Amino acid sequence: MKLHGRSYDRDSLARLAGDLSAAGGVRSVVLDDGAERGIRTLEFRTGAGLSFDVLVDRAMDLGGAELDGAGFGWRSATGFRHPGLHEYRDDDGLSMMRSFSGLLLTAGLDHTLFGAEVDASQYRYPPRRTVSNGLHGRVANLPARLTGYGEQWQDDGRCVLWAEGEVRQAAIFGEHLRLTRRIEADLGGTEIRLIDRVRNAGFDPTPHMYLYHVNIGWPFLDEGAHYELPLRKTVWRSDSVAEQDISNTTMPPPVPGFVEQVYEHELEPDEHGLVRPRLVNERLGVFFELEYDTAQFPCFFQWMHLREGAYAVGFEPSTHHVQGETAARENGSMTFLEPGEERLYSTTFRVGRI
C-alpha cells in the first residue's frame, strides 16, 4: 500500500512504528456532550487523508467525514442526536428531521419515503390491523450490537480497516428484520465500502423497503460545484423544481427560503450494472462519488436542500419509486421477504482529487 508517497507492507510499517495507529486505524470512542451524549462511535483514519465516523448507536450509519480536513459528510443543526431522544410518532411522522445529519442515513427496513398507514394482517393480531410508518422508517434510530472492529492484514498485502454490527428491528406481532452491516476502508485508501444484508428473521412474510440517504455538505458542496449523473431520463420532479427554476447540475450558494427539490432519475449502468453519480468541486479540486448496483437499487433520487443553514445535496439509491409504500402496494411492486429470505446491498463511497 502507499502512504505519504511511499510503498509499505506489514513488516516495513512495523519497523517504523510500534503501533499501526501511527499510520491509521479504527478507534472506539463515546460522544459525551449535548444531544450526542452516549453515542458509541468508531473513528476511521486511512492515513491517506480520509477520515470518517461510524455511529454504532445510530444503525452504524456514517456521521462526519473528511478528506485532508475538508468535510464532505453533511453537518446539520440537529447534530448526531442520541436515539434515546427519538420519538418515532413525533411531528406527525416527520420526527426523522430532528436527527437528520451525517454522510449516511439508512432508511428502512420495512418502510421508506413519506409516512403511510398500511395493512398488517399478515401478522395475525386483531388489535393491530395496520402499521403506521413515519418518514423513512425506524432503522436509523436503532442502536447496533457491535460484533467487531479493527485492522486486518490480507494475503495480498493490504490492511483493511473494518467494523461489523447487527441492527434488529422487531416487534411482537410485527416485523422481525435484521440488518448485518460491514464497513471497510483500506489503509492508504480513499473509499468506504458498505456491505449490508437484510434478513427476515421472523416467520411471517414481511415488507421490505431500503434506501440510502447519502448527504454531501460544505465545503465539498459549494457555489459552482457540479452534480454529475449518467442520466438516461428523469421520471419525476417535485413541484418545487418548476417553481424555483434552480439548476440541479451546477450548484448555487445557499438560497434564502429554498424549498427542497427532489428528482427521480433513471441512470445508465455500465456493463456490470453499476452507476457512479458524483459531485465535483473544481475550485477545491475534489470529488465525491457513489458507486452502487442497479440490480440492488433500481431507483435513484437526487435531493437538493440548498437553504441557508441547511445546505446539502443528496444521493439516494432506493429499492422503490418515489411515490412510496402505498403506491408500491397498489401497483404490485412492493417487496415482501419470506421467512429466512435476505437481500444483499454492496455500495462504495469514494472521494479523491481531480
Rank of each mutant, 00 (worst) to 15 (best):
Glu325Gln: 15
Leu55Tyr: 07
Ser51Lys: 11
Ile39Arg: 03
Thr180Gln: 15
Glu151Phe: 04
Trp74Glu: 03
Ala144Lys: 03
Asp156Gly: 08
Gly93Ile: 10
Thr46Tyr: 03
Val139Tyr: 00
Thr78Trp: 03
Tyr125Trp: 11
Phe301Trp: 13
Arg124Ala: 14
Thr234Phe: 06
Tyr123Glu: 04
Thr294Met: 12
Met209Thr: 10
Ala170Ile: 14
His213Glu: 00
Tyr125Met: 10
Val255Ser: 04
Thr294Ala: 04
Asp11Gln: 15
Gly49Arg: 08
Thr180Ile: 12
His213Ala: 08
Asp155Gln: 08
Ser238Cys: 10
Arg15Ile: 11
Pro254Arg: 08
Asp239Gly: 15
Glu316Cys: 11
Gly79Ile: 06
His213Ser: 07
Ala328Leu: 06
Glu316Asp: 05
Ala48Asp: 06
Ala310Thr: 15
Ala328Val: 09
Ala120Met: 01
Arg129Thr: 12
Thr319Cys: 02
Ala107Thr: 07
Tyr88Glu: 02
Ile172Ser: 15
Thr326Gly: 14
Arg27Thr: 15
Arg197Asn: 11
Gly137Asp: 01
Tyr210Gly: 11
Phe80Tyr: 12
His4Met: 12
Gln154Phe: 09
Arg232Asn: 11
Leu274Glu: 12
Gln302Arg: 11
Leu67Tyr: 04
Trp303Cys: 10
Phe287Trp: 02
Ala295Thr: 13
His320Asp: 13
Gln261Pro: 08
Leu211Ala: 02
Glu228Lys: 07
Thr180Val: 13
Ser101Thr: 07
Phe287Lys: 01
Val241Gln: 10
Asn200Lys: 03
Arg145Ala: 15
Pro269Ile: 10
Ala77Asn: 04
Ser238Thr: 13
Ala17Cys: 12
Leu103Trp: 10
Pro127Ala: 03
Thr348Tyr: 06
Glu291Gly: 04
Glu266Pro: 11
Val139Met: 05
Asp293Phe: 01
Val214Phe: 02
Ala35Ser: 10
Asp92Val: 14
Ser28Asn: 06
Leu103Ser: 05
Thr294Arg: 08
Val214Arg: 00
Leu103Asn: 02
Leu142Cys: 08
Arg329Tyr: 09
Trp74Pro: 02
Gly257His: 00
Ser318Glu: 09
Pro83Gln: 01
Gln261Met: 15
Gly285Met: 03
Gly352Met: 05
Ala48Thr: 08
Leu85Ile: 13
His213Ile: 08
Pro298Tyr: 00
Val160Glu: 12
Thr348Cys: 12
Gly115Phe: 02
Glu166Arg: 14
Phe114Gly: 14
Trp218Ser: 15
Pro256Asp: 02
Asp204Ser: 14
Arg129Tyr: 04
Glu66Ser: 13
Phe44Asn: 05
Ala107Trp: 01
Gly352Glu: 01
Glu191Leu: 15
Leu267Glu: 07
Lys2Thr: 12
Leu55Gly: 02
Gln122Asp: 15
Arg6Ala: 14
Arg278Leu: 03
Val235Ser: 11
Asp19Asn: 09
Pro126Phe: 00
Gln261Ala: 13
Arg75Phe: 13
Arg81Met: 08
Tyr345His: 12
Ser51Leu: 13
Glu228Pro: 07
Gly18Gln: 02
Ser12Ile: 09
Pro219Asp: 01
Ser21Phe: 05
Pro256Val: 05
Arg81Leu: 10
Glu308Tyr: 05
Leu187Phe: 07
Phe288Gln: 00
Gly34His: 06
Arg237Gly: 13
Gly34Leu: 06
Asp90Tyr: 11
Phe80Gln: 01
